[in-house]
Simulated scan of single mutants.
Amino acid sequence: MEYILQILPSLLSGARMTLSIFFWTLLGALPLGLIVGLGLTSRFRPFKAVLRLYVWLMRGTPLLLQLIFVFYGLPMIGFTLERYPAALFAFILNYTAYFAEIFRGGLQSIDPGQYESAKVLRLTYWQTIRKIVTPQVVKIVLPSIGNEVINLVKDSSLVYVIGLGDLLRAGNVATSRDVTLVPLVLVGIIYLLMTAVLTFVLRKCEQHYSYWK
């Protein structure tokens, strides 16, 4: 117990970095994903083709490779980012693509008749999206979004590759220094606690939207 109390501050410091990456990625990727998802359903083919290429690149290459490219590759063309902004940039780009595909599927599941009804009611396109389509899409995509949110917590451990001190890196440092697996066990417990809280929140959100059944 004495050893656990000794290493716990460094682990909690790493957990703060993990939660920071998680929070800002979610804050940036969710609205961008909805916008890109709307773009993927547009009738303007050149724009749609560009977005499809972006989604294909982001989903078809590992997030770890994207992190390395953003931090180590972009400076070669004169675009340099510090470690933390580089990690956020890569994570937001990656998760925007995943969320966009989820939202695209949700948008395409809406009955076209609802758009026609909105026109009869003289609603603008954006009023239709905001007041009629989006509430239904949120309910449809919530389980899939929840899976990606849980994955984001675990994927945040990849930031070690560019030298950020996240939770897993803090555990690895303590394990290498003290030659014991106790820090990694604590890391696993902290990850489980974070995912448990998120799972609870997501279930509450699903229950909130269940009145549309």
Score class of each variant (00 low, 15 high):
A170C: 10
L93A: 15
I150C: 02
I140Y: 11
L5R: 12
A196F: 12
S144G: 10
E206Y: 10
S117D: 00
V120S: 14
L12C: 07
T199P: 03
Y209K: 03
L181W: 11
Y125V: 09
D166I: 12
G113D: 02
P85Q: 10
A90W: 05
L12S: 06
V153L: 14
T41S: 10
P112M: 02
E206S: 10
T41E: 01
G146L: 05
G37V: 03
A87N: 02
R169N: 14
L63A: 06
L34Y: 11
L142Q: 08
T80N: 04
V138D: 00
L19A: 12
E2M: 12
P31L: 07
T124F: 08
G14V: 11
Y3M: 13
P31A: 12
L74Q: 02
L192R: 15
V197H: 03
V55W: 01
R43D: 02
L81K: 02
Y191M: 10
S176T: 15
P112H: 08
I92K: 14
I68D: 03
A118V: 08
M194A: 14
L27F: 11
F23W: 09
T180F: 00
Y115N: 09
V50W: 00
K119W: 11
L142R: 09
R59I: 03
R122F: 05
R52S: 03
R43E: 03
A87R: 01
K131W: 12
N94Y: 15
P143F: 03
C205M: 14
F89K: 00
L74D: 09
L202Q: 14
I140Q: 14
F47A: 09
L158N: 11
Y84K: 13
L34M: 13
P135H: 11
W24T: 14
T96A: 09
D111W: 06
V141S: 05
F89N: 04
Y115K: 15
W126I: 15
L64G: 04
L11M: 04
S10I: 09
L198S: 13
I35K: 06
L184Q: 07
G37K: 01
I129C: 04
N94P: 02
I35A: 12
W126M: 13
L152T: 07
P183I: 01
L30M: 14
F22P: 14
V159M: 02
F99C: 10
F44C: 01
G165W: 00
A90N: 05
P85D: 13
L193E: 03
L164Q: 07
G146K: 06
I145F: 11
C205E: 01
G39Y: 01
I129Q: 04
L184A: 07
L74V: 06
L11I: 05
W212H: 08
N94I: 01
A170Y: 07
Y115F: 15
G165A: 12
T134N: 03
T80P: 00
G106M: 06
I68M: 13
G113W: 00
V182L: 15
Q6T: 10
N151S: 11
Y84Q: 15
A15Q: 04
P85K: 07
I4K: 14
L186C: 07
L64I: 11
L57W: 05
L123S: 05
G171E: 08
F44K: 09
V70M: 02
V55Q: 01
G37W: 00
Y54N: 07
K154F: 09
I7H: 06
R43H: 09
S13N: 13
G14Q: 04
V70N: 02
